[in-house]
Write a protein that binds this DNA or RNA. Structure first.
Lengths: 341, 341
DNA sequence: TAATCTGTTGCAAACGTTTGCTGTTGATGG
DNA sequence: CCATCAACAGCAAACGTTTGCAACAGATTA
């Protein structure tokens, strides 16, 4: 049925090994022979069978990409960049979705292990131990989580959170809220620590609310709680939550940024589409995807296990501004009254 | 290095074919033997090598999913649903992005062909001929495009467009604009035809603007042109464009839906996050993904080549309402003046 | 001139499975 | 008691490649 190396060999009067070499080690075959083989291959429509190749070389030229939730707008740009980059290097990529379930995550790695040359693990929810375990079965690069001894590429959310908080501080805010993300998220911890430290260092207060699911509904649901704190500025775990909050506040006739400033993290596409446009920390997700692919592909060569820390950028838009500043220690009722004006 | 069927055979004192059958045809092996083999396999950490299996059976248990742009929010829910559904049937999926380029599209199908049992082609930009050509190399299911003789699952955008236009008509609008999508999009044609026919049947006018790239910037850029037509309602090729337009209008102090009503198509997540929330036609993308996978997997069995037409739903939110109605034949200047009030 | 080398090709053994066929055993039926 | 059969297990040939080794020619070196 399908045309194989053998058909090409017969048609061009050489041995199959010569045909094989024409494709996998061209420099070993006479230019003349080579072009003849190439021509008949082209004419016959020959395409190498990757399964057979994989069987003998042990390299599949496939990589796996495991993310928590494909539909979370944070991931698609990363997936896209990784896929495009991989393809340019003649690799194909399996994409899989864990639905934020650590068990599914582990199963997936196992299932994919034999079929890929390595796996990119995005924001894994597994324990460090589990991940180290799996690393013994298949080359791994972890994205958005740092585990000593494991190759990783992370986006420096700590630095991003610091910039965001400093921006808010510069605008005069003294009481901030951090709307935290899901339990078990490494990123969440980093943000929380960095934001807390930066606020404290400036003598400002930071109230942590959460944990929350990283979705807009959770941000919206947190609106009351945010107002109750009396804070004038909010940093959210991600843009989705920030946008949810943004709209919930506006639905309550609370001006953003007039009365409350809101900052997100990720810079998803929607952040620009929403009004006011969201001030946020832009994560270089595309760069991260590419870097992770490179790291994975190099890993085979040397045994290097580098860790890359990608710079993040605060992008200031219209959801932040100098706020209304309450007397310290205002009660919830006072805040609400103030805010209603 | 890796543990193979041979290791398991040796360790459990049977022939390799028995081990093979334990996994691929359990009913052919004695329950006692089977459990013994299973136990040692488990203990040794044996995992079947899919490449070897694929080589001999010709079935890879992989499928390919090719989309125009992973980052376009329309696709991720479809990808997610397809992947999850496929995995439940023990298939893994390659995801690839064509960047809206028909050439890349064809290359990708070819490259993936030998490595998958079939390919899901989403909103292809290739010509019908090309697609039929490729179908001879690999089983195909086309999503969001109807080609006679080819298995397809489409979302009934025609019906969606009709509902949308009827909704606008019911609100009293007499002059509508259709903001059309990219050239070569089958969906675009369908919408345009359905919208035009519905408007004409009611004696209303429909002006077509475009083509445009299916992105929010294009929607925003079209704002002036839309106003110039004097229309009071707009149907856009997709939500992204609708949202772009929405914000561009508001930035010009034009009330939505007070002065102009806007309807999108797709019901992407952002449509609910934007204010006013966007009235739009919800496409059952997840269902489409699942249906396409099923269709592809069945295709091997019988030679069936069904076509599924999925129902779409108009979801009415806050971007549509009774508009201000101008005297017929108002000039651009008059419209602008009117609209500024 | 003999020895060595270089460039090119063929040969055949892998890689880890699946599967049609053949044997063996013990049970069933006449 | 022989013939038939069913259930099970082993044998070996595939599947389409890659790759170490050997063979050979012609060129280079000593």
């Amino acid at each position: 049925m399908a045309v194989t190396i053998r058909d090409v060999a017969r048609a061009s009067g050489v041995h199959i090994s010569t045909v094989s070499r024409t494709f996998s080690a061209p420099h070993l075959v006479n230019p003349e022979t080579r072009s003849r083989v190439l021509a008949t291959a082209e004419q016959l429509g020959y395409r190498p069978n990757r399964a057979a190749r994989a069987l003998i070389t042990g390299r599949t030229h496939n990589i796996g990409l495991i993310v928590a939730d494909i539909a979370n707008p944070f991931f698609p740009p990363l997936i896209k960049a990784a896929e495009t980059h991989a393809r340019r290097r003649d690799y194909h990529v399996f994409v899989a979705d864990t639905d934020e379930d650590p068990i599914v995550e582990a199963d997936l790695v196992q299932a994919l292990a034999k079929q890929v040359d390595g796996i990119l693990l995005c924001s894994p929810r597994m324990s460090d131990d589990q991940i180290e375990q799996l690393r013994r079965e298949v080359p791994l690069v972890v994205i958005n989580r740092m585990i000593t001894g494991l190759p990783a590429v992370v986006m420096d959310v700590g630095q991003g959170a610091r910039s965001a908080v400093r921006h808010l501080l510069d605008l005069g805010h003294r009481h901030l809220v951090y709307l935290s993300g899901p339990r078990g998220s490494w990123t969440n911890q980093k943000i929380r620590q960095a934001a807390g430290a930066t606020a404290r260092a400036a003598g400002a207060e930071l109230t942590v609310l959460g944990p929350h699911q990283p979705v807009s509904a959770a941000g919206a649901a947190a609106a009351e709680a945010v107002l109750a704190t009396g804070a004038t500025a909010v940093l959210a775990y991600n843009d989705l939550m920030a946008i949810g909050l943004l709209q919930a506040l506006q639905d309550r006739d609370i001006a953003v940024p007039g009365q409350v400033s809101v900052v997100g993290i990720d810079d998803i596409a929607a952040s620009e589409l929403v009004r006011p446009q969201l001030t946020t920390v832009a994560n270089p997700t595309a760069a991260a995807g590419r870097a992770a692919v490179d790291m994975l592909l190099q890993q085979g060569d040397d045994g290097s296990t580098g860790q890359i820390n990608l710079h993040t950028d605060l992008v200031i838009r219209n959801s932040t501004g100098p706020g209304p500043f309450l007397p310290a220690g205002a009660t919830t009722a006072e805040v609400a009254a103030y805010v209603k004006e």
